[in-house]
Design a protein around this nucleic acid. Structure first.
Lengths: 178, 178
DNA sequence: GGGAGATGATTAACATGTTAAGTTCTTTTC
DNA sequence: GAAAAGAACTTAACATGTTAATCATCTCCC
């Protein structure tokens, strides 16, 4: 019934009242989701100030970058590429279009589909941000080591792949025990 | 006339209109932030349905789990432990308190500080969710391999540590070139 | 060829992320 | 010992995440 603690260990042992806490799961701060979250936040913390200086959020930047790698693309495909959900993408596209950073038109063969492309203004913005972004990325790579970084990415990709074909934890039967 | 693209790198050369697209940065879908995001999402996708069945969001669950590992804790410390920003934590605590899953009181020595603890009801909820959660975690571990998982976590922690003491990319000088 | 169902995209509604302001209490400083 | 500076939240405001519902179009099938 340890009363554990903390990220760095230091913490006075507390031993008072309360319905004695059962040996509780995995150490909290070491769970995989937390590790991934913390690592990603540490990375993004490096980039956010620069993006902000250019009036872009992380997601807007993702979309512009994705668009800059293609000539034009349908919204659904863009969502997949930029790893955003439809509703988020809809909102952001509305905003980026209002700022004239992208252009949108209906697909010819299917009026339900919208086709998006980056504008000249959008490209210019990308070119303004890219150098800083690249410099930051290079600094991270140098700090962590290119090889290690590649290894890490491989493991992340493998993890994603492994999980993608796991049952989606429907939960029904697993929650039998109250 | 699709000029598509995809996650796997293959890319048609594009040569039409517009201010000719310069060789553009790192391949988008292979950037570190994206890898981390995708991996984390793959993991969370496993857990979310179960949490949802118990009326909990991911963050609410993080808070309850953090609280279950201590006797009581101040809000600021809890934010650090659950890796949430102050405003998010404020909102969630308000909600959890209304649902009587946690308890809150003012600190004795400093009335600015609030001390939070999990309630009996909250503990009960945790005990209801934990088995499923553990089962999912075990399945992931088995699928990916316990050793590899440990390796991955080490790398993530190392990355976070390396970045934590990098300059925060103030950007001012880096953005000199337009 | 017209209606049921599928599909692409948006809107709605609520929760969180993120930065900036505001509140209240505490500590410093003169 | 009171004003100023700092600390610990909390609120505000806006952007995104997340799921469900809606809208428009399209496909299929009778």
């Amino acid at each position: 019934m340890v009363r554990k603690r903390s990220l760095d260990g230091s913490r006075p042992g507390q031993t008072e009242a309360g319905p004695s806490r059962r040996a509780p799961m995995r150490e909290f701060s070491r769970s995989l989701p937390m590790s991934l979250l913390r690592a990603r936040e540490a990375v993004m913390r490096q980039f956010r100030p620069s993006l902000r200086n250019h009036g872009l959020t992380e997601q807007q930047w993702r979309i512009l970058r994705a668009l800059s790698s293609v000539d034009e693309i349908e919204v659904t495909e863009l969502a997949r590429l930029a790893f955003l959900l439809g509703p988020s993408l809809s909102r952001i596209l509305r905003d980026l279009e209002a700022r004239q950073l992208i252009e949108r038109k209906a697909a010819e063969t299917d009026l339900r589909r919208a086709v998006v492309s980056i504008s000249a203004k959008g490209l210019k913005l990308i070119e303004a941000v890219a150098p800083t972004s690249e410099a930051i990325y290079a600094a991270i790579t140098k700090r962590f080591g290119a090889r290690r970084l590649a290894e890490l990415q491989e493991m992340l990709t493998a993890l994603e792949g492994d999980l993608s074909d796991m049952a989606s934890g429907d939960d029904a039967e697993l929650d039998a025990n109250e």
